[in-house]
Amino acid sequence: MNQPNTWPPKRGSQQEFAKAHGEELAQRYQEAFWAMDPVADAIFASDHSVREIMPNLREALQRGHADENTFPEVAALIDDMKKALEGIDEEQLERGRRVYLSIPPLAHGIALGPGSLVHTYSTPSIADVLVNTGELTVGAVKRLAYTTNWTYSLYLTDGLQPGGLGFYHTGMVRAMHAHVRRVHNKRGFDYSDWGSPINEFDMLRTWLDFTIIPYAGLEKMGWKLSQEEQRDAFYLWKVVGRMVGIPSDLIEPLDDIESTQPYLDAVHEIDGEPNENSQALVDALMHGFVVNAHAITGLPEDSLKEWTEAHVRIIHGDGPAEAYGIATTNMQPILEMSVPTVQQRFDLLRANQEALDEEIKNNEQMLKDLLDPEASYLKQDDGVKTASTAS
């Protein structure tokens, strides 16, 4: 149900929101609740079947440009993604990439996995869509790995350039968002309480889960960035955000943790409370992260479970952790005591250019080794399944 002139009822009071955050932001968010991604959505509104579209899309993304065999709607998506790269600051983009790679992938993994996704799943508008899609609770291990796969690809050298691995994966993620919207709308799911499925507002909220949420979390873990480093990391994600279909105006003011916090607070006011789908997704996430971490490290799953639970409490605090039934473990105080040492080592690393370059080189190689060429969203030619049917 597309009702762009209404404020979804479960988003709270529009008047109260406008009073607290201004009429302009209230109006923009009202539009964002219903707006989707017309460029990507057009791909699946064409006369071509999904079996025809997906290989055509993959080939064009891998080339980084359309050719005479590219469907017009696919060519339009490629062009729109390239527009996001026009006029960007290449030096700042590279600095943002290096900021990410200066932190060990496993630390980033906990911040971008249980750190970010516990927050993502806390709003029913996102949790309901994901559970209806059916993959995140049934295939949580694989689905978590696929999301991680996408993020890894963004930080490879020239990964975001047309034809780069990050460009390819980002285009596929954007297309899969469009396909999920098509399936959910076709199935007639009622989203009038929250807004359209995977709408602009939900994409903005998810963007926050790749920026302020993990970097504020990493700070609590001992990986505190300078404001300049934050701005560089956020800048990279602004470019990715535009490439994945988020309008520039929604993310333009969001430069670092400090400037983004008021917007995160505003988002929380209209998020709604976690529901049973939120709980199901968090349960699946916690299990999936431990299984994946075990496959990478070889450490016992029981220890990794306690390590993960401890980090969720460190990142999100006791309140959210208690709400999701995350256990208190003896590992948490040990990790908290180590934070000053972690930060000291991190500061020393950044003060030694030669050591930092070597760390970045090693971490980038680790990402390459962890990439999964069999990610299912790259090969989903049969369509996206909902919880009750396939399309």
Rank of each mutant, 00 (worst) to 15 (best):
P162V: 09
L225A: 05
S192M: 00
Q365R: 13
G64C: 07
L348Y: 15
P373N: 14
S303G: 12
S125D: 08
A284T: 05
E336Q: 15
A321K: 00
I334V: 14
G166I: 13
I326Q: 05
D190W: 13
A284M: 03
T151R: 07
P4A: 12
T341W: 14
Y377S: 01
W307N: 06
A175K: 12
L57D: 11
A66S: 14
T151I: 11
E252M: 08
L154V: 11
K368I: 08
K83E: 09
Q261D: 07
T157R: 15
R174C: 00
S192E: 04
W7Q: 09
G319L: 12
I334F: 04
G22W: 04
T329P: 01
P247R: 03
G288C: 01
F33K: 00
Y235K: 11
K368H: 09
R51Q: 15
S192T: 07
F234E: 08
H119E: 15
D255H: 03
E73L: 03
E68M: 03
D190K: 11
D369C: 04
N275I: 04
T148C: 03
Q15S: 09
H316M: 13
S122M: 10
L61S: 06
M81C: 11
P320V: 10
H179T: 06
E91F: 06
N292L: 13
R28D: 07
T329S: 02
L250G: 00
L204G: 02
A295S: 14
A355G: 02
M286N: 10
D347I: 08
A45N: 09
I198R: 05
Y100D: 04
P162W: 12
E16W: 10
H177G: 03
H184Y: 08
H177S: 05
L77E: 11
T308Y: 01
E16N: 13
P72K: 09
W150K: 12
G12W: 12
I326A: 06
D302V: 10
L285Q: 09
G12I: 05
V74C: 02
K385W: 15
P274K: 07
I198E: 02
G166H: 15
